[in-house]
């Protein structure tokens, strides 16, 4: 990988999944994106396929795809619930997933079915251990 683990951005205010998505609580809803590690591994993101607002997913289901120059990868939803917003800007500027994965590169906002699912996600320390293990 190009970034050393010490160089990765790992905010404290989000939870993480084993598939390298992040989830952040915002006004009772959950905003979702991919981590700095994931974007670094994938390389240039050139296309983001997101679900329609209103669709309902269970935790762990595929909710979209990310197209990098080299490959296509699935996006898995960290928490079950209804899609209440998607990041429309990524249609024009998918590279924001690379440049600002935890900010402007966000993908969806989920209205959670069971907020307890959020609590079961990894915190920064646990996610860091997973990254170290995959080195």
């Amino acid at each position: 990988m190009s970034k050393a683990i010490g160089d990765l951005v790992l905010p404290d205010d989000v939870r993480y999944t084993l598939d390298h998505e992040w989830a952040r609580q915002e006004n009772g809803n959950i905003k979702v994106g991919i981590t700095d590690y994931a974007q670094d591994q994938l390389g240039d993101i050139v296309f983001v396929e997101l679900p329609e607002v209103g669709r309902i997913f269970s935790a762990g289901e595929e909710f979209g795809t990310l197209e990098s120059v080299k490959a296509v990868s699935e996006l898995y939803i960290p928490i079950g619930g209804e899609i209440v917003a998607i990041n429309e800007a990524l249609a024009e500027t998918p590279e924001q997933v690379n440049s600002d994965p935890f900010g402007n590169g966000w993908m969806i906002v989920v209205k959670p079915g069971d907020i307890a699912e959020f609590e079961s996600l990894k915190d920064k320390g646990a996610y860091l251990e997973i990254l170290k293990g995959s080195e």
Binding site: S2, K3, Q41, G43, D44, V46, V69, K70
Partner: peptide, 24 residues
């Protein structure tokens, strides 16, 4: 240079440096 390295034909080779798109 921070290249993303991978095996190709038995050699560890750069897949891209900072951006495969910009390289293309």
């Amino acid at each position: 240079q921070g290249a993303n390295m991978a095996d190709f034909g038995g050699y560890e080779m750069p897949l891209w440096y900072s951006s495969a798109k910009n390289e293309h």
